[in-house]
């Protein structure tokens, strides 16, 4: 017993050392939008505690950071606007003309064009964040939701939940050049880092479609099964792909689990139990921790990526929805 205790202590001591050395380097901020509280919670990823709660517009959902990490964009759905907040002093600098009911968005690598899904109007709005003007409005399918821009900036993707399509928007022409039919209720879209694949999750279909960016055809469909949980409850929503190209994390909504997918074999290797109705996720820059927003339980689960285990639950506001992480080097003093 003594020796095992010593092992634990020894292990802890060894683990603490690099952590404490990197105190400053690893204290990122995770911004979490609370849909039914009209706030954004900020979590310090070193202590994994909420350090502040910021009042924002009505029904905040999508959140994303500018490429220079100076500002946070917030989809305030019921205020029909995208708010631009300074990460330095949490002040709302201005609002962008977003079109009605903005839900999700994606920022082009040029740091200038924001692609916004307008859920109630079946359009995607492209806003120039510098001039704060609408550059284009593109007709898409019913209930546009998921948004992604390829890393090379060529394509913007919008998924339409009721039309069950991923629309491919040419960012030069600002028009749709192709549509890929996927399973029921596509929610989230993510490009792989090399832009060769587009991943689209289908909430009601219960699948993730992997689409080849060249042919725009589905090359593989991922399915999920969790023992003891009805397949109707397994509803893929948010996705996070690791930078090393090896793993994918898929939030499975009301099944309260996150699936871990091996991207070489395309097999699910783990199901991690998190909070209730898991929506979206964000990985730390080191890719060592995953933060999940759990809508129904009103909290964020911290998952240790290496061990595939949930290590902490952090209470935030009501119905946390979106999450994005500000790297430590940009965290204001």
């Amino acid at each position: 017993m003594n020796s095992s205790l010593a092992k634990i202590v020894g292990f802890t001591a060894a683990a603490v050392l690099p952590l404490s050395m990197s105190n400053l380097a690893f204290a990122h901020w995770a911004y979490v939008s609370n849909e039914k509280d009209d706030t954004v919670s900020v979590i310090d990823t070193e202590t994994d505690e909420v350090i502040k709660t910021i009042d924002v517009g009505e029904r905040p959902r999508g959140v994303t950071l500018s490429r220079d990490f100076q500002t946070l964009y917030i989809c305030a759905s019921d205020s029909d606007t995208v708010q631009v907040m300074s990460v330095v002093d949490d002040k709302i600098l201005h609002e962008l003309p977003s079109g009605e009911d903005p839900e999700q968005f994606a920022l082009h690598p040029d740091n200038k064009h924001l692609y916004i899904a307008n859920e109630d109007d079946a359009i995607a709005t492209v806003v120039d964040v510098e001039t704060r003007t609408v550059v284009a409005q593109i007709d898409v399918g019913v209930e546009p939701e998921g948004m992604a821009v390829s890393h090379d900036g060529k394509f913007a993707i919008v998924t339409s939940e009721t039309s069950n399509m991923a629309h491919w928007i040419d960012t030069e022409a600002q028009s749709i050049v192709a549509n890929t039919l996927v399973d029921q209720r596509p929610r989230d879209a993510e490009f792989t880092l090399d832009d060769k694949e587009l991943w689209v999750s289908s909430e009601i279909g219960g699948t993730v479609s992997i689409i080849d960016s060249e042919s725009k055809e589905i090359t593989h469909t991922l399915n999920f099964a969790i023992p003891g949980i009805s397949s109707d409850r397994i509803q893929p929503v948010g996705m996070e792909l690791t930078k090393d190209g090896k793993w994918a994390f898929i939030a499975l909504g009301p099944s309260n689990h996150v699936a871990v997918v091996n991207r070489d074999t395309l097999e699910v290797t783990d199901y991690i139990l998190v909070g209730r109705r898991v929506w979206h996720m964000a990985l730390t820059p080191e890719q060592d921790k995953l933060y999940t927003t759990n809508g129904v339980s009103g909290d964020v689960t911290v998952v240790d990526v290496a061990s595939r285990k949930a290590i902490k639950t952090i209470k935030v506001g009501r119905f946390p929805w979106g999450v994005t992480i500000l790297p430590s080097e940009h965290v204001p003093n």
């Binding site: 079946a122 007709d139 399918g141 019913v142 339409s160 009721t162 039309s163 069950n164 399509m165 629309h167 749709i176 549509n179 039919l181």
Partner: peptide, 10 residues
């Protein structure tokens, strides 16, 4: 209307 919103792409 919903069918046509998808149908126009198809």
């Amino acid at each position: 209307n919903d069918n046509n919103a998808s149908g126009r792409f198809l």
